[in-house]
């Protein structure tokens, strides 16, 4: 355990050393958020209410989506991809730590800066656009629990997409494909209830909604009590299932390692 704590601590510091990269990586998400806020601002102007969202709730929903999007966003996959492509992963393999757990430890270590920066952006948006409705204490507790599940879940999706590098040379395309699929099915920019039914069903059986829509819906009060608990359970089931799946993929992927010369 201590080994992993050290890894987490190292990553937490390294983020500070490369703060510029970090801020830039948040830029894309930020401007996406601003554009969506502007669009919804017009659509929900003059007190309009769509699918149970008024302007205040929609802002809260988008901000929670933004925070979830910012988690595990600062290139854990690019670090992995780079090391897999140039063969440095061979060095990782010789270390007496479990590869998957080590990467998770790094992600946890980096998460505090992601969270802090995302909250800073949220505070800025709230300052400019006014307060949003706040959930009651029980819902807030459920929200926190749901948010906790987002971190390992997102890590696993990012981690598995990084493993694809054992099979392809270029990671950028895989990275984009993941971003798009997640942004569509997680419902971070447009709540899933706005989509056609078939897309909603598809989103319901995929793990991505657990990465953003579940905590966001709890926060804006569209999910309560039993229903919220059930969806939080779904989140944790996905964490376990994907953790095991990632292990399976890893076991196959390392058989493909070719290390060139020395």
């Amino acid at each position: 355990m201590r080994k992993y704590l050290t890894l987490a601590r190292m990553q937490a510091r390294s983020v500070l050393a490369y703060r510029l990269n970090f801020v830039l990586s948040l830029f894309a998400l930020m401007f996406q958020l601003f554009a969506m806020l502007a669009i919804w601002g017009v659509m929900l102007g003059s007190g309009r209410n769509l699918n149970g969202f008024d302007w205040g709730h929609m802002r809260a929903y988008l901000l929670v989506g933004f925070v979830c999007g910012a988690l595990v966003s600062q290139g854990a996959d690019f670090r992995m991809a780079g090391r897999i492509q140039d063969g440095m992963v061979a060095v990782d393999l010789t270390k007496p730590v479990d590869y998957q757990r080590a990467r998770f430890a790094e992600v946890v270590g980096g998460a505090w800066t992601e969270l802090a920066t995302a909250l800073l952006v949220c505070a800025g948006v709230l300052l400019l656009s006014g307060p949003v409705p706040w959930p009651g204490v029980p819902d807030l507790a459920l929200f926190a629990l749901s948010l906790v599940a987002v971190l390992p879940l997102k890590f696993l999706i990012v981690y598995m997409s990084g493993l694809v590098c054992f099979y392809t040379q270029n990671y950028l395309g895989v990275h984009w494909a993941r971003l798009i699929i997640v942004s569509l099915f997680a419902g971070a920019l447009v709540p899933l209830s706005f989509f056609p039914h078939w897309l909603q069903y598809l989103a319901a059986v995929l793990p991505f909604a657990s990465m953003s829509a579940t905590p966001a819906l709890i926060f804006v009060g569209q999910l309560h009590g039993g229903k919220a608990l059930a969806l939080i359970a779904v989140q944790f089931v996905w964490v376990v299932a994907l953790w095991l799946l990632a292990r399976l993929i890893w076991r196959h992927a390392i058989t493909r390692v070719t290390i060139h010369g020395g």
Binding site: Y167, T168, Q169, N170, G173, A177, I180, S183, L184
Partner: peptide, 18 residues
């Protein structure tokens, strides 16, 4: 790298569609 070629183009196209 043919696979990468298709992944890149596909991902870029998908991004616009989404």
């Amino acid at each position: 790298y043919e696979a990468d070629f298709w992944i890149l183009i596909g991902a870029a196209a998908l991004m616009q569609v989404v």
